[in-house]
Structure formats: C-alpha cells, structure tokens
C-alpha cells in the first residue's frame, strides 16, 4: 500500500540576487519515510528545505501540507507542525531547559506541561545533567543534542534535518540515527540532508540527488547505488 502523502511541492523556483538557485523542483514527502537529500555544496539543499518548511518564500511554485496550500494566513500554523534541525545550531543565551522549552512557550503550553515534556525529552537524549547549564557554554556536540531536543519536544509532524553529523562524535551520530529511525517508524516523515552516503543508504527510503538547483534523480537507495555510482564523487 502506498504511504500517505504529507507534503507536496510543485514547480519550486527560487532566485537569490538574480541567480537561480532552485529550478522547477517537484517532490512528495510521505508518512513514515526518510527522504535523503544529497548533492554537492551550493546545490540548493538547504534552500529547498527552508522553502518546504515555510521559512523562506519561493519565487514560484506551491507547497501543500496534507492537501492544503500553504499561504501567508496558514503558514504560522504549518510551521508549528514541523521541526527543523539546523546545520549550524544556534542556541540562545539561556539555560538548556529554557532553550528546549522555547518552542512550547511559543505555542502557549502551560508551565506544568512544558516541564513534563522538556524533562522527558532531555531524558530521551541523555542530557538531563545539562539541564541548568547555559546552552552557550556547551561543547559543539552537546549543543547539537540540545537543538535536537528542542525540535523533538514539540512533537513535529515532519522533521527537516540539515546535515546532523557536523561536530558530532560517533556515539552521537548513532543517537541521531536511532532517533531518525524511531520517529519515522512512528509515522513521522523525515527530510534528511546528508553528505554521508552510508547514512543515506541505511536510513533513506528514497534519495534525491541535486545539482545546481535541479533534481537529478529521485529513487530508492538500491536503485541509486546501483545506477548512479558516478554521482557520488560529487558528494
């Protein structure tokens, strides 16, 4: 049975300073699947997921969430359904607890609810002991974990991850991979940008390869690695 379509984008075009960085991108994101986005530096991967998550406006094209066209009126509501883990994390000058609580405060959760959810999420990532530390004083890897906690705590219905491996040690990479598996098994679709083709192969249900703002391929890892070996030298 085909999995349910959660997100559809059609004919996305994006310019930065008269330079076309995305050209006619179409794609679908389905429930419980991991979509791996690969491609060389500057090929438009980050720009694409910023448009998919309503952080950036496309110059042309549409994004549909569960069949509904995203526009100015409903984009805040849409943004509150998604989670985004950045390539370079930015934590705020506050305790780990307050950083993780932020998304829930934006959504006007009660203090009690916030406390429960933050505590259980810190526990899930094994960083309960960092709770009272200032987030800015943490190591790169610890910060990345806090930023993952900050995203998961809001129970996102789609998760976008931009290159999670930067500044993580092996153990932490495994933790991220475990979480990606858990979330996708729970039905949450995940769009994962990665330069690591083993990761794309192991975690991905589908692989999109981009080059110069164009979608070059969109297929399963098996097909991809059978036929497209030559693309990998770009990554």
């Amino acid at each position: 049975m085909e999995k349910q379509i959660i997100l559809t984008v059609q004919n996305i075009v994006k310019y930065y300073d008269n330079q076309k960085v995305l050209n006619a991108i179409d794609l679908e994101v389905r429930a419980g699947t991991v979509l791996a986005l690969m491609g060389p530096n500057g090929s438009g991967k980050t720009t694409l997921i910023k448009i998919l998550s309503s952080l950036e406006e496309a110059d042309k094209g549409e994004v549909y969430y569960q069949g509904e066209l995203i526009n100015k009126e409903n984009s805040l509501n849409f943004r509150r359904q998604i989670g985004f883990i950045w390539q370079k994390t930015l934590l705020y000058n506050a305790s780990v607890y307050n950083n993780v609580a932020l998304g829930l405060q934006f959504r006007n959760y009660s203090e009690d609810k916030i406390k429960d959810k933050v505590d259980s999420t810190l526990d899930r990532l094994g960083i309960v002991d960092l709770k009272e530390r200032n987030a800015k004083s943490l190591s790169g890897g610890q910060q990345q974990k806090v930023s993952i906690a900050r995203t998961l705590v809001t129970d996102p219905q789609i998760i976008f991850i931009d290159e999670p491996n930067t500044s993580l040690d092996l153990e932490s990479i495994e933790l991220v991979e475990k979480i990606i598996k858990e979330e996708s098994q729970a039905g949450v679709p995940i769009v994962l940008i990665t330069h690591n083709f083993y990761q794309a192969k192991n975690l991905g249900d589908e692989i999109i390869f981009m080059k110069e703002g164009e979608k070059v391929t969109h297929e399963t890892p098996a097909e991809f690695f059978e036929q497209r070996e030559e693309l990998l030298r770009y990554v």
Partner: peptide, 16 residues
Amino acid sequence: DKIIDTALSLGASKKQ
C-alpha cells in the same frame, strides 16, 4: 538572520 530563522523554525510568530 539566524536568530529569527531559528525562532520561526521553532514555531514562533513574527512577533515572538
């Protein structure tokens, strides 16, 4: 840019 982008991705309204 980074502060605003990160906040929006966490579900902040423009004002928040």
